[in-house]
């Protein structure tokens, strides 16, 4: 049952009601103002002032940040993070959800296992996978190599592997949960569609491609853009797993912004960089939505 508010006329009795209502929501509004709204305005202001916040410097902070030698490197890496996360992390939950939707055995056990990594805190996941990737014989991957008599090798310290390996650790945490979200929507598909397709002679694969995936399409697009947005801002994972190394091979824009603020103590430049990131991600979102509309036509 939905409660719908009617348009009310102004009455003195109502006025007191309204005041008491505003009093009850006031703490939340204060918190939102302090935590969510004010910092955005403050950030845009800071970016145009020097690091002490006293002198107006125009676009100097932006120029400084963008002309830094590491900016292009970080931008390239961040793009790589996003691309790898789309390669590794976007299709996997779709496939897992489709497969799980077929099962009637061990479903609750499987669901729990898939959900479990989501419960592990991000920082613990990063450190856990840091151990999985340890370069000497002690890491899980090298232990597995050891079982086959192969000698250990470096993982995170390999500049070509470090980004995909970090993405794998993040995918491990998130894909199961996303699968469960997809699964919930798949269970709403009308069985008759599959029956009709079966009568027309379509096999399992054809039915999946022609019925299941089109049903999931809007959700895939939504999760896709959310994933791009969150991976674009990646910071804690490289900070805790590699510190940005080897030789800045895993340095992301988010981590660069963190370094400006908390290692070099150049707050204004840090904010300027995050504003640059903000505009990039907004641009990507707009293009994405536009492309999505075009594709749908």
């Amino acid at each position: 049952m939905k409660y719908t508010a009617k348009k009310r006329k102004f009455l003195p009795g109502r006025f007191m009601q309204d005041v008491s209502a505003w009093v009850l929501i006031a703490p939340a509004l204060c918190a939102l103002m302090l935590i969510c709204w004010r910092p955005i305005f403050l950030g845009f202001k800071m970016a145009f002032f020097d690091n002490d916040g006293l002198k107006y410097v125009g676009l100097d902070n932006f120029k400084l940040v963008v002309s830094d030698v590491l900016f292009i490197k970080a931008l390239k890496n961040t793009t790589l993070y996003v691309v790898w996360s789309l390669i590794i992390g976007m299709g996997l939950p779709v496939v897992v959800a489709i497969l799980m939707n077929e099962l009637i055995h061990a479903t609750s056990l499987i669901k729990s296992s898939l959900y479990l990594p989501q419960i592990v805190p991000v920082i613990a996941v990063s450190l856990l996978w840091y151990f999985v990737y340890l370069p000497d014989g002690s890491g899980l991957l090298n232990s597995i190599l050891g079982l086959f008599g192969l000698s250990p090798r470096v993982w995170l310290q390999d500049a070509r592997l470090t980004i995909p390996l970090i993405i794998i650790s993040m995918t491990w945490r998130g894909f199961g949960f996303t699968s469960i979200l997809y699964l919930a929507s798949l269970q709403g598909i009308n069985r008759e569609l599959y029956e009709a397709a079966a009568i027309d002679g379509a096999g399992f694969l054809r039915r999946t491609v022609k019925i299941t995936i089109p049903h999931m399409y809007p959700m895939i697009m939504l999760f896709g853009i959310n994933q791009i947005k969150s991976v674009f801002n990646i910071m804690v994972e490289p900070l805790s797993m590699t510190g940005g190394g080897p030789d800045n091979a895993s340095l992301s824009l988010g981590l660069q912004s963190y370094r400006y603020a908390f290692q070099y103590f150049r707050m204004s430049e840090s904010v300027a960089l995050s504003i640059v990131m903000w505009f990039i991600i907004m641009g990507v979102t707009v293009i994405y939505i536009y492309a999505d509309k075009k594709l749908e036509q």
Binding site: I35, W37, P39, F44
Partner: peptide, 23 residues
């Protein structure tokens, strides 16, 4: 207020790290 809360969810929070720290 309802609209503002809904829109706040859509805005990425990256810009607010440093200002929030200063706050």
């Amino acid at each position: 207020v309802h609209t503002a809360i809904f829109l706040t969810m859509l805005i990425p929070g990256t810009v607010s790290l440093v200002p929030l720290f200063k706050t």
